[in-house]
C-alpha cells in the first residue's frame, strides 16, 4: 500500500504541490488526472525519490520513502516509467531491460523475466539487439514499461504513457496496463488522456494547481459534470 500524506513540494519559492493526500491500495489501478502543470509529474518524481518534498510523508508498506536514498526505492518494490520514456538510447533494447533488473538480488531468473517481458511486448523481441534510440515512440514506451517491470515491482508508476502515441497504440498501451494489473501489480497512472485513464481506473483523483479537488471511482468521475467539462471535452 502506498500512502501519501499532506505532501508539499516547492521549486524555489513556488509551491507546486500544496499538501495532497491519497492512498493506493494493493491491486488497484489509481489514476491522477489533471491539466498540464497541475503537478502530476512532480508528485510522481517525489514518490520515486527524484525530488525531495518540503514536508509530508510517502509511505510504501510502512516504509518512509522520503528518508531513504532515491536509488534504494526501486528495491522496495516501486518502479517508475518516467514521462518521456527516458530509455537509454545508446544501449540496446536488451541492455535497457537488464538495467531494469539492476537493483534486484535474485538475478538467476533474469532470462525468464526477459521472456515474460518479450511475451507482453513481442515487438521488443524483434528489436532486442537494436540501440533503443532507433525505436519508434510506441516501441520506446513499451521498452520503458518492460524495463520497469524487470525490477519485479509490486507497484508500478506510469507517467503519461500515452503521450505522443497514435490512437491505435494508445489502446494497446492501456490494454497492456490492465494486463499488468491483472497479473497482480498495483498501478498508479498519471494521464492527460483522462477518458482512457478513467475507463480502466478503480479510483481516481483530480489534481488542480497542486491540490486534489475531486476523487472517486473511475466511473463516478467519468460521469461527473465538472470532470466532463474540464477534462473530457464536454
Amino acid at each position: 500500500m502506498l500512502e501519501i500524506k499532506d505532501l508539499r513540494i516547492s521549486y524555489g519559492m513556488i509551491e507546486a504541490i500544496k499538501g495532497i493526500s491519497f492512498v493506493v491500495n494493493d491491486g488497484e489501478i489509481i489514476t491522477l488526472i489533471g491539466a498540464n502543470g497541475a503537478g502530476k509529474t512532480t508528485t510522481m518524481h517525489a514518490i520515486s525519490g527524484l525530488l525531495k518534498p518540503v514536508s509530508g510523508s510517502i509511505l510504501l508498506n510502512g516504509t518512509e520513502l522520503t528518508r531513504i536514498p532515491p536509488h534504494r526505492i526501486v528495491s522496495l518494490g516501486l518502479a517508475q516509467v518516467p514521462e518521456g520514456r527516458r530509455v537509454f538510447a545508446e544501449q540496446t533494447v536488451e541492455e535497457n531491460l537488464v538495467l531494469g533488473a539492476y537493483a534486484r538480488k535474485d538475478k538467476e531468473h533474469l532470462n525468464e523475466d526477459l521472456d515474460s517481458v518479450f511475451s507482453l511486448f513481442p515487438r521488443l523481441m524483434e528489436r532486442r539487439k537494436q540501440p533503443s534510440g532507433t525505436l519508434s515512440g510506441g516501441e520506446q514506451q513499451m521498452l520503458a514499461m518492460g524495463r520497469a517491470l524487470m525490477a519485479k515491482p509490486s507497484i508500478l508508476l506510469l507517467d503519461e504513457p500515452s503521450m505522443g502515441l497514435s490512437p491505435l497504440l494508445v489502446s494497446e498501451i492501456f490494454h497492456i496496463i490492465e494486463e499488468i494489473n491483472k497479473k497482480g501489480t498495483t498501478v498508479l497512472l498519471v494521464e492527460q488522456n483522462a477518458k482512457r485513464a478513467l475507463a480502466i481506473a478503480d479510483r481516481a483523483y483530480v489534481l488542480e494547481t497542486g491540490r486534489i479537488t475531486l476523487s472517486g471511482t473511475g466511473e463516478e468521475l467519468a460521469q461527473d459534470e465538472r470532470v466532463k467539462s474540464a477534462y473530457l471535452g464536454g
Partner: peptide
C-alpha cells in the same frame, strides 16, 4: 552498463536503482 546509463540520464539511472 550502469556507468553508460549514468552518462546518458542520471535521473533514469536512479530509477533503475543505480
Amino acid at each position: 552498463r550502469a556507468m553508460r546509463a549514468c552518462s546518458e540520464d542520471k535521473g533514469a539511472a536512479t530509477l533503475m536503482g543505480i
